[in-house]
Design a protein around this nucleic acid. Structure first.
Lengths: 338, 338
DNA sequence: GTTAGCACTCGTGTGGTTAGAGTGCTAATT
DNA sequence: AATTAGCACTCTAACCACACGAGTGCTAAC
């Protein structure tokens, strides 16, 4: 792949990303001064098509990058501009008011990203189940009700109202909680559900129904059912490739299925940094006309969640990647203090 | 309006609701044995059109109910079937597992309704701001952190982590909370934000920064920003009147704007019972091709929120109304114990 | 009051044609 | 040997004319 082919592929890809129209040799020669004639470009494009970087929707149309073409563009050709000053300010401002809770951050991040990229955006919140149990505490709310608060080492908390045996005092309750915390702290919350079934100490066993109710909470309320936040799904209606109502239904239908999206997210390497899946690389038939850009964010040193952008294959890769890089970074910063 | 016109209007409306195709006189005569000829039906339909109950998309098409026609159908003609046994069981089962919190109920309700009606559904959660403040409580989480729990008379709670002056003990904190609770209980939370600016007691004034932080929470975290839950928006793609991508964008765009929807919801009488707004009756240009069915639900005796269904004008009014009646009722029941 | 008959309207679907964009190939040019 | 001009060819989208059919309104007969 010589320099000329590279620049043709690059220029063609960028033109198509903007125009959504198959790009012909004449257009290319006229619009960008490459110093070569349409005929030469045709020859080069024929080669690029042979090698699988380009495709033709039909014989008499221009060329369009294939998945492989986009991949090469993303990996080798694309320029990565620095983020604009205004945009950076806006992102930072979003996280400045840090009076909020994790869930709020997650929602806001999804909105922010879909807003500034113009694509649908998905944020996966930290998995509660994978968190490390740290401590348990009761707060009595009424004669037979208490607030049960559970905390992970990352500082995530879940709380809910539980019914308690009325004969227990607040002090007794918290003594129990302390015992429980000592016993199980350091254990992943997911594993907690297994271990707790066979309580080790008598005092825990004694108030079995209480723990069972707590368990019910762990298994359901605290589970990862609502880990996913989808923002701006309608954005895809702005792109002509989704003028087909059927396509829209397929894609948005997929994005609404939490489980499916979560599963797809797991195929991304959780190594930090931004990754791109192009078209069929996602291995999901419903979104084979889409690309997905993913970044991870952290609480402290641990990667706990992902920010994703889903768009048409001719996505503004460079821009989206830069945005996600910055956003996930700022989010991680914000969570450091949360 | 004689009996024959009524039955023609009814039958025509129901046929159109199912078929989405303008209904002609011949169809009507053939499909339903009304005992009259197409010509007679034509004459009657001409009258109904003159009176504004029917419309013609174009000269050579069949008739379609107008807003006024639907209104008459809903108010006078429509049969209200009892809810099916299986459906009732399903609805009840959703609320049976009452281990959850309010927010979960709200989400589940939206999903349930959009699921069984096949239309997008919106649930407005109880307004936190309009709740009546009941009590405040602190739970210390760490050396300089505490969980602040606020409770309304309805039993709604909000809680968040706040930073506290490290010199305060748990006992001191809760003494403060008690004082605060005594001072302000019975007051609407919205008003609380104004009153608290001028603290009445010295001990409250003393820990001003603490209250200010709590205030910040009340003003933002606890506000009604996320009162609305939208479920199943994609359902509208199933109806042929929304094959136009522009219409879809308009409608879904509107449904995503929390504020606009909330405002529209306020135009419904909050009297309990199910209300229907048809087409332009909604006074919202973006959804003038839609109808909205709304039910209210309660916590105890107080109406605190709404369940809405948005669909095409040719909505299955009877079915949707019955479903909403039952769902809002079961939801109110479930919240009675929450 | 009801209905049959009929002319009329209008949207939809079909087939054929055209215009235009773009290609691949070949031969000429550098 | 690489590049380019020229040209025939292909294919789609747009356009038009046309016929079809559903449905109406009107009139006259029942």
């Amino acid at each position: 792949m010589d320099a000329r082919k590279r620049s043709i592929l690059q220029v063609l890809t960028e033109d198509y990303i903007l125009s959504a129209e198959p790009v012909g040799s004449r257009t290319l020669a006229r619009k960008y001064n490459l110093g070569i004639s349409p005929a030469t470009i045709r020859n080069e494009m024929a080669d690029l098509e042979d090698w699988g970087f380009l495709e033709q929707p039909h014989t008499s149309a221009g060329r369009v990058p294939s998945d492989k073409g986009y991949r090469f563009y993303v990996d080798e050709l694309m320029a990565r501009p620095a983020i604009g000053h205004d945009l950076l300010e806006r992102i930072r401002a979003t996280y400045q008011s840090r009076i909020r809770e994790l869930e709020w951050f997650v929602h806001q991040t999804a909105r922010l990203v879909s807003d500034i990229t113009g694509y649908p955006s998905i944020v996966l919140a930290p998995s509660w189940e994978l968190g490390i149990f740290s401590a348990l505490r009761f707060v009595r709310l009424g004669p037979d009700q208490a607030l049960l608060i559970m905390r992970t080492e990352d500082g995530l908390t879940q709380n809910r109202t539980v019914s308690i045996p009325s004969e227990l005092s607040l002090a007794q309750l918290n003594e129990l909680a302390l015992e429980f915390s000592r016993e199980f702290s350091g254990m992943a919350i997911r594993d907690l559900q297994n271990y707790i079934l066979d309580p080790l100490s008598t005092s825990l066993k004694q108030h079995w129904s209480l723990w069972k109710s707590a368990l019910g909470w762990l298994a359901r309320d605290g589970s990862d059912e609502e880990r996913m936040t989808l923002a701006g799904p309608l954005n895809i209606l702005n792109y002509p490739e989704f003028n087909d109502i059927e396509k829209v239904r397929r894609v948005l239908g997929f994005l609404e299925q939490d489980k499916a999206v979560e599963q797809m997210a797991q195929t991304h390497p959780m190594t930090g940094g931004v990754t791109v899946l192009i078209g069929t690389e996602t291995s999901v038939a419903d979104i084979q006309d889409c690309s997905v850009v993913t970044a991870t964010y952290q609480m402290g040193e641990r990667i706990v969640g992902q920010v994703m952008v889903v768009g048409p294959r001719r996505m503004q890769y460079a821009y989206v990647m830069t945005v996600l890089e910055v956003v996930s970074d700022e989010l991680s910063q914000a969570l450091r203090w949360a």
